[in-house]
Amino acid sequence: SAVVMEEGSPGEVPVLVEPPGLEDVEAALGMDRRTDAYSRSSSVSSQEEKSLHAEELVGRGIPIERVVSSEGGRPSVDLSFQPSQPLSKSSSSPELQTLQDILGDPGDKADVGRLSPEVKARSQSGTLDGESAAWSASGEDSRGQPEGPLPSSSPRSPSGLRPRGYTISDSAPSRRGKRVERDALKSRATASNAEKVPGINPSFVFLQLYHSPFFGDESNKPILLPNESQSFERSVQLLDQIPSYDTHKIAVLYVGEGQSNSELAILSNEHGSYRYTEFLTGLGRLIELKDCQPDKVYLGGLDVCGEDGQFTYCWHDDIMQAVFHIATLMPTKDVDKHRCDKKRHLGNDFVSIVYNDSGEDFKLGTIKGQFNFVHVIVTPLDYECNLVSLQCRKDMEGLVDTSVAKIVSDRNLPFVARQMALHANMASQVHHSRSNPTDIYPSKWIARLRHIKRLRQRICEEAAYSNPSLPLVHPPSHSKAPAQTPAEPTPGYEVGQRKRLISSVEDFTEFV
């Protein structure tokens, strides 16, 4: 048969007729292969192709491409040299491709048809291009793949890379869960390890502090508590009631339409708007009261037996805890006409967050109470924005700035309102402590230090009264110190430094 060459192609190359033996071998191979691939376009007849790359030819070592076609129900084999250009295909004639002069020997084609199974398996396991790669995943090629499931790999992101949580363990979102698992493993320790309690022994800490320079003076030496005195035992138990972190309780009120001037209507609300609910979820963490331990979680007086509701929101960081007394989460009882059960919590909070959804101005004093010092007013606006402002009593104007209003988005509203309420509550605590000038409020841990110092002074006084020969370590507060001759004046800087060093040991009130 003659071949018409394309323009620009090399000279004529004689194409030899395939021997009958080659056709029989390739026909047997075509019957084993699956003929249901995917359909081509209507211009080209339905056909199945599979590209198999052999590394070497037997005796020649030339890479070839073998295409199996099922045109007219008769499979045909096409061998081509890759750099050459194939002729145009037609549905009426068999596929013809040019070969190099080196394939002119018909014996070479017979060798190609009689490829060993080793070469076929190696060509099938190679990388296939384009559409033949999808075909190689079918059941027909499963014989050339190794048996057994593939090893499982770690989760992959859409980009093909490992997620960040699997790369950096410290930033993994499941870090707290692993800590819980470690605690569970520790709890399952053997009885021999049960006595080993991690941490620092208080006796060891005391020993280090006792021999430090801070205890060089007799006034700073630790003293032993009497065991037989019940009054001192009660004082030590009272110390446990003062937490070592700051605590805040903040009221949250929802004002519906037409309720801006009605205290009873505001306290009777059992739910609010959708934006109000989203605002609550951002204030803190939802907790169930019956599962809380009052000595570990500050509840601000809420009952854990269901008297004040089942849930509330709280927030904490390293040095403070805040609980929100939310009116809509507290039960509304029919027998309580004046809502006294709610007001006994909300009316005693220094700061209230008022979500004013009424469309009218909310005035300070609508919720009557002796300790309502500051109101954080949240007014929802259009386009997911809110107006946040402050209202306070006249005696609080020096501590709280009420002249600045803020426009905040719904997303950042819980954070801004919480921070403003916490700052206002700190100012309210300082303002409330002014009624007792001898006990200015600095912080909870300073209050613990003052309680310890008062307890020490009482013990020293009782020891001096029981044994008059012992001198008083600290003179009583009601006694007057003996007159001392004025010492020589020293520079102001040295006096300030000495006073600062003494105050650092005794108390921190002056620095606050």
Rank of each mutant, 00 (worst) to 15 (best):
E228I: 08
K221P: 15
A405G: 08
A417R: 00
D336C: 10
I377W: 01
D341W: 09
S409L: 02
N425L: 04
V236D: 10
Y254I: 00
T332R: 07
L381H: 03
E307D: 10
T247S: 06
S435I: 10
V335N: 13
L224T: 13
N261G: 10
A447V: 07
S260R: 04
Q230M: 11
G309I: 10
A447P: 13
P486V: 13
C392Y: 06
V430T: 04
L422P: 00
G492R: 08
E233N: 12
N269D: 02
A483G: 13
L283Y: 00
S504E: 14
Q241C: 09
R434T: 15
F324V: 02
D361L: 05
H271A: 09
S469T: 13
D395S: 09
D291H: 13
F350T: 03
N467A: 13
I250A: 01
N425A: 11
M320D: 15
S268N: 12
H345T: 13
D217W: 14
S244D: 15
I266Y: 04
N227S: 12
A405C: 14
K363I: 08
I326E: 05
K394H: 12
C305S: 14
I287H: 08
S504M: 09
I440H: 11
Q370I: 13
T402K: 07
P331Y: 04
Q241F: 06
P476A: 12
V335F: 13
I367G: 04
G272F: 02
R500L: 09
R418M: 05
I502N: 15
A481S: 10
M396G: 02
T509W: 05
P226C: 15
T485G: 11
V388T: 01
K296W: 12
D318S: 08
L224I: 10
V304Y: 06
A424V: 04
V430G: 02
I266P: 03
R411G: 10
A265I: 02
S231I: 12
N227E: 14
L455K: 05
Q259H: 03
D410H: 01
F373P: 03
P489Y: 08
F371P: 13
L264R: 09
Q293F: 09
Q321M: 13
L364V: 15
I377V: 15
D217P: 15
R234C: 09
D308S: 09
Y254A: 00
C392S: 05
R500I: 10
D308K: 12
H451C: 14
E307N: 13
K337E: 15
R285P: 05
F279G: 00
R344M: 07
R500K: 14
R275E: 00
R448D: 13
C305A: 12
E488S: 10
Y493C: 12
P226Q: 13
V495M: 12
S358Q: 01
F350I: 02
A421Q: 00
W445L: 07
Q230K: 11
R498G: 12
P243H: 05
W315M: 05
